[in-house]
Design a protein around this nucleic acid. Structure first.
Lengths: 302, 302
DNA sequence: GAGTAAATGCTGAGAGTGAGCATAACACTC
DNA sequence: GAGTGTTATGCTCACTCTCAGCATTTACTC
């Protein structure tokens, strides 16, 4: 391919991180400023690898080390950023265990309220908005919109699939229900907090990826304290998935995962009921199963 | 984050494409030169989006348009390339329908022979090499290696999972069984053809992604002629998955996918047996299900 | 007519999942 | 110290999916 572009080799590149942690009130991501923005830093030449770069600058900014790091997506479209030339943004997901009550943490479901279905949140408003959007066209196009709406939001016989968070965001964006960049717009509380540029889309990407990873990699444990009860583990899984899970089935699954966790021997008292056994993640299996065969349940909701 | 790097904003960026097509002898990717290399081109400023860039330069180079395009991964580690500074490589997977007998196509299983298990290929040699690698260390490390080998290669009670192609490549690379860059090395025929730099790893990434996509998106049809028999469809799926599938179950699954395909009405004669019904992909469902709920079977092999 | 490939119908084993009932063990109240 | 609420834990059952075969029919090619 010939290089007929005008600036053959000059691009600014930055790392954008979705640093996630799970606290009492659910998952949260590092974000600060007004409008909220994700931590980002110019790509530096003194990092051997991108992963290393992400880890380093997350440590600088937060004092926390990231347990798990995964590349999300690279954005380089024109029309992003501030018009000072094309910026290549390489986005990463990083998991850590931090106190999310500090002000620099933004609740994931403050940004994407419809993704939390634990307490039968009345996201009905958005569904209705979508209905109007569906009816905005006729014929085959309307059917297509209708199908997407039903598939993504688990309407009718379709299940709600937590890992489709990004696609839901994109649908809502197309429908004009959520806004990117803080333009003046008729933003309802149900449509969540706006972020700078396309940062909220990146958060949605991260949530999607995290929810997917949950199903086949032992990533939850990066968000857990060293020892924990199965109840606590379930709470974290539910927080990430945004869905309640059947308690008995959850323990069955965790326990039958061959040697994924092991009991420490002591109990957790004072939780108001029968004391729970404490468990520890068997870090030994991490290397082996980093990529394979560790599934925690994300149920398909009804 | 402060910009303490020495060259804050100067990076070369390129697009690298894994352009795949399926012909008589299985999946193939565009690659030429000696050593073989993937088509790549400098990122140009006159493309609005990366996708558009990939499509444009694939069209330039091959004359074929890509039906499906998906971003794979962005590489920007030092130590890649030719030492003339850091290059950011954004890799893409693109599917097309082309005659793969032309010389610029390299068979995917020439590059990654162990990924084709259709004809009970005797990849036993590699398994044995891996056994030696496992025995190269002691204690817990040995167990970890052993576990990884069993998980990834479907040994013992573990199933062979086609979509783990990348992880298998990485394991073989760690074990020194496949080489990157054409260094002089004891390369066996069983370890496949070497490519430039890390290009073979990118092919493995593409194969992994393609096999995953197969399970929940109607991407196969991008590789099929406008009309086809279920037998042909099965052949292509098997070629990509590198695995045979149970015929009756395959048809059952395809047919019960609500309106995914429809019979054209005419038959395919001259195949040596009873003529098969020809089908056509219902492109209408593509938009709706682009992201959701179209699963074709990739079986877990025994 | 023989051979072959495709379509079609059916079946049963087994795994996995969703959902519920029942019991156990604590804290707290009266 | 009995009762109540709450959480943990154990067990069962129905149901769906998937895998994997068997058998039969059809209609072409050679």
């Amino acid at each position: 391919m010939s290089t007929s572009g005008r600036q053959p080799g000059a691009f600014r590149a930055e790392l954008v991180a979705v640093v996630a942690s799970v606290g009492e009130d659910g998952p949260a991501v590092l974000a600060s400023g007004d409008p909220l923005q994700l931590p980002a830093g110019e790509l530096r030449a003194d990092h051997d690898s991108l992963q290393e770069g992400v880890r380093a600058f997350a440590a600088e900014q937060t004092g926390h080390t990231l347990g798990y790091v995964e590349q999300l997506y690279t954005f380089a479209d024109l029309g992003r950023g501030d018009g000072t030339g094309r910026v290549i943004s390489i986005s990463y997901l990083g998991l850590t265990r931090a106190d999310t009550t500090a002000p620099e943490w933004a609740g994931a479901y403050t940004l994407l309220p419809w993704e939390d279905r634990r307490s039968v949140g009345t996201e009905q408003v958005l569904i209705d908005d979508l209905s109007r959007w569906v009816r905005g066209v006729r014929g085959a196009a309307r059917e297509a919109r209708q199908e997407r709406r039903e598939h993504l939001f688990g309407i009718g016989s379709m299940p709600w699939r937590p890992e489709l968070a990004l696609q839901r965001y994109e649908l809502l964006w197309e429908a004009g229900i959520v806004a990117e960049s803080p333009r003046a717009s008729a933003v309802r509380p149900e449509s969540g907090a706006v972020m700078l540029h396309d940062h909220r889309r990146i958060v949605a990407t991260g949530l999607s990826r995290l929810r997917s990873a949950l199903q086949y990699r032992p990533v939850v444990f990066e968000l857990m304290p060293p020892t924990f009860t199965l109840g606590q583990l379930q709470d974290v899984v539910e927080a990430i998935a945004g869905q309640d899970v059947h308690k008995q089935n959850f323990r069955r699954l965790v326990e039958q995962q061959h040697q994924l966790v092991e009991p420490t021997g002591d109990l957790s008292h004072g939780t108001g009921g029968r004391p729970a056994r404490r468990y520890r993640f068997r870090r030994e299996v991490f290397a082996e199963r980093a990529q394979v065969g560790t599934k925690l349940p994300i149920p398909r909701g009804r």
